[in-house]
Structure formats: structure tokens, C-alpha cells
């Protein structure tokens, strides 16, 4: 089992999730974050922190390519350990996602 960041994170990246992760297992690029499934201890601290509900448990999206994508990307991208400035347009994107009911 592990936790997985889904595509909702793209273009948003509030990184609120990072400040509560007890084991520093978030990795990311300029676009979005990924969780290292080897390090994640499944504590669930990050889920309520994400304003766009981008984080899910793998058992809720079984078969989704997102699971492998997190595994692959987290292995090559740098670890993000502290909250960063959200990407420009993040607020608007969150509002749009919330209006859509996706988040």
C-alpha cells in the first residue's frame, strides 16, 4: 500500500501536503508532486491538507497508471521538504476544480 498524487496536483502545487509528511517522501518538478511509495508510511496526514483532493490511497485507484507514475517520477525528481509558493494561477485552478466537483 501507498499514497499516490493524482493529476489534480498539476498546475496547482500548493505544497501544503509537504509540511505534514513525517518522512519527506514528496518529490516534484515545476509542475506537480509525486509520492515515493517505498518511503511513504501510509499515515494519511497529507490527504486532508490538499486543497484539491489530489492525494488518494492506491487501493482506491487500482490499475491506474498514476501509481506507476508516482513510483517512476519520485525516483528521479528531487525531494521537496518544505512548503513552497503555489504556482501562479493555483487559486483559480482550485476554484475551478471545486466548482466542477472534481475536488
Amino acid at each position: 500500500m501507498t499514497h499516490v498524487v493524482t493529476e489534480n496536483c498539476a498546475g496547482c502545487r500548493f505544497t501544503d501536503c509537504v509540511s505534514v509528511c513525517p518522512v519527506n517522501c514528496f518529490h516534484g518538478d515545476g509542475e506537480r508532486l509525486y509520492i515515493d511509495p517505498v518511503l511513504c508510511i501510509d499515515c494519511g496526514a497529507c490527504i486532508p491538507k490538499c486543497p484539491v483532493k489530489a492525494i488518494v490511497e492506491d487501493i482506491d485507484i487500482l490499475g491506474s497508471p498514476m501509481i506507476e507514475l508516482n513510483e517512476e517520477k519520485s525516483a528521479i525528481l528531487p525531494v521537496i521538504t518544505a512548503k513552497q509558493e503555489p504556482l501562479p494561477g493555483a487559486e483559480a485552478r482550485r476554484d475551478a476544480l471545486l466548482a466542477e466537483g472534481a475536488a
Binding site: 505534514v20 513525517p22 496526514a45 518544505a82
Partner: peptide, 11 residues
């Protein structure tokens, strides 16, 4: 609060 909550708090 769980373990990670304390990370944000202590930071």
C-alpha cells in the same frame, strides 16, 4: 493530530 501534524507545528 497524527505524527506529521507535529512536523508542521514544530517547524
Amino acid at each position: 493530530g497524527i505524527i506529521g501534524t507535529n512536523r508542521e507545528c514544530a517547524a
